[in-house]
């Protein structure tokens, strides 16, 4: 579904991603872990189409299409969804209000009829249950004054509404208490199918108890330096990243 080859990206002349290789197939869950500042969010943003980053090398193919060639909105319409690490606050725009446009844009792109107000509301109701989010929150200014947990829940709610093929969750677990974590994970799991794939960026093994990964990758200094099964996450939780850093440094000498 997604094939990243030798991806290099920089911002203001600083190279942040330094040769990422990653293959994601339908039905899979990949976890990306790694120390702060290693480039996890940068990778997620580049996949979603953030224009500040300059792609200096490499390619990304998503469902046989050149992803890097597409505008952010077209990536979304093709089925890429990014749950932001830091969801943006937008005064004066409510979730309900922009999501109706978003959902219909995506539907139009996929050759589906637009949803009228009644059908849209019905869809909202259904998806709201999934992440146990209150309708009042959705009619308020987007993310403005939301708690950390509310913001993250809103991200997953939007994901549910847009029914993506590839979901990239950037630290969706941070700031969630255990109940909220269960709800959010449960939502993500219900949206999973053998036709979709998920990339979860996290610092904590805890999330991976709920969203069980098929693969765990360690990103360090802009490269994936180690990949393994879900046991790797447990090992990282226990031992931290120093042993991986040492491995990398000694290998490069």
């Amino acid at each position: 579904m997604l094939s990243i080859k030798n991806l290099h990206a920089s911002i203001d002349g600083n190279e942040i991603l330094r040769g990422i290789n990653l293959e994601v197939k339908a039905g899979e869950v990949h976890a990306i872990m790694g120390p702060n500042g290693s480039g996890k969010s940068t990778l997620a943003s580049v996949l979603a189409g953030r224009e500040e980053y300059e792609i200096t090398e490499g390619e990304v193919v998503f469902q046989d299409k050149d992803l890097l060639d597409m505008a952010p909105e077209d990536r979304a319409r093709e089925g890429v969804f990014l749950a932001f690490q830091y969801p943006v606050e937008i005064p004066g725009v409510s979730t309900t209000n922009f999501l109706r446009t978003a959902v219909n844009q995506v539907r139009e792109y996929r050759g589906l009829e637009p949803l009228d107000a009644v059908k849209f509301l019905a869809l909202m109701k259904e998806k709201m249950k999934l992440v146990e989010i209150d309708q009042k929150l959705l009619s308020r200014s987007l993310n403005e004054g939301f708690s950390g947990g509310e913001k993250k829940r809103n991200e997953i709610f939007q994901m549910a509404m847009l029914e993506p093929t590839l979901s990239i969750l950037d630290e969706t677990d941070s700031g969630l208490d255990i109940d909220a974590l269960r709800i959010v994970s449960n939502g993500v799991n219900q949206l999973k199918s053998d036709k979709t794939a998920t990339i979860v960026v996290t610092h904590y093994q805890r999330l991976l108890d709920y969203i069980v990964p098929d693969y765990v990758h360690v990103l360090y200094k802009g490269r994936i330096v180690k990949s393994g099964s879900k046991e790797l996450a447990l090992e990282l939780e226990e031992k931290g990243y120093d042993w991986i850093k040492e491995e990398v440094e000694s290998a490069s000498v």
């Binding site: 224009e51 943006v88 995506v106």
Partner: peptide
Amino acid sequence: DEEALFYLQARGLDKTQ
């Protein structure tokens, strides 16, 4: 706000919208 613009685009709205 460029961040807000990107957020909305990442949800499927074109840039003009």
